[in-house]
Amino acid sequence: MWERDVPNLKNPEAASLLIPNANGAYCSGGAEGPLTCTAPEYGIVNYLNYQFRPNAMLSIRSEFYDDFKGQRFGFPTDYSENTIGITWFVGSVIEIRPEARFDYSYEVPAFDGGRKWGQFTFDTDAIFFY
């Protein structure tokens, strides 16, 4: 995918073109570069699910994402994400899904405000069907 006419964060004159709650891009050319540029990105994801009990399933997810100009996440770098989780059905009304996830940025530290290369996340959710 890509977005065109994205304000260049390196060019101070492009600050007036920024839209609230939208990111600019790190375009080529530095401060003397164009006011806007095209910001491409791509990603690929893989899911592997294994049902090990009639009411439980193991899920493994791997993703690779390249934010060429930092317009999507604020840092121009490649990212990977790996998640492992379990889906447990409690009867026919409740679904509980704990998971552990690790994200990593390859070219610049992109987590914790640009201070860390990766981050772990542990979470769970419950879905109630009605």
Rank of each mutant, 00 (worst) to 15 (best):
A100L: 05
I44Y: 15
D103Q: 04
N46L: 14
S62T: 14
K10W: 10
V108K: 04
F64Q: 07
G118S: 11
I86Q: 09
K116M: 04
I94L: 14
F52C: 01
W2L: 03
P20Y: 02
P98K: 15
I94A: 10
E99A: 07
L17E: 13
F73Q: 13
D103P: 01
T87E: 04
R4N: 14
N46Q: 14
L17M: 08
Q119V: 04
P34M: 13
G118I: 09
E107S: 00
F102Y: 15
T87P: 02
W88P: 00
Y26Q: 12
Y47E: 05
D123H: 00
F122M: 01
Y106S: 02
V6Q: 01
G30A: 10
F128H: 02
I19C: 04
F120T: 00
S80W: 11
V108E: 12
P20L: 03
V90T: 15
S28W: 09
E95L: 01
F89Q: 13
K116R: 12
Q119N: 03
R72P: 00
L17Q: 12
F68L: 15
A22G: 00
Q119W: 01
F111W: 00
Y104R: 08
R97L: 02
N21L: 10
N8I: 06
A126F: 05
N23K: 13
M57Y: 00
A56C: 13
M1S: 12
D112S: 01
W88G: 07
L58E: 09
S59M: 11
F129N: 12
S16P: 04
F129I: 07
W88L: 05
V93I: 09
N21K: 09
S92E: 01
T124W: 07
E99T: 15
F68R: 08
F128V: 00
R101G: 07
I84W: 02
T124C: 10
S80K: 07
Y50K: 05
Q71H: 03
A110H: 02
R115E: 09
N46A: 14
R72A: 02
P34H: 13
A100F: 11
Y104I: 11
L35R: 11
N55G: 05
L48C: 01
D66V: 12
F111H: 02
E3Q: 12
V93E: 03
D66H: 13
L18V: 12
D112C: 00
L9N: 11
I60L: 12
W2A: 04
Y42M: 15
K116I: 07
A25L: 01
T124V: 11
Y65S: 13
D123F: 06
W117E: 08
N82T: 12
D78S: 15
A110L: 01
Y130P: 09
Y130V: 06
A31M: 04
G113D: 09
T124Q: 08
A14D: 14
F73N: 10
Y26E: 12
K10M: 12
D66G: 03
I84T: 02
A25D: 05
M57K: 11
V45T: 15
T36Q: 12
M1V: 10
N11S: 08
F52D: 08
I86N: 11
V93A: 14
A31E: 07
I94F: 14
R101V: 06
K116P: 14
Y79I: 14
F122K: 03
R97A: 03
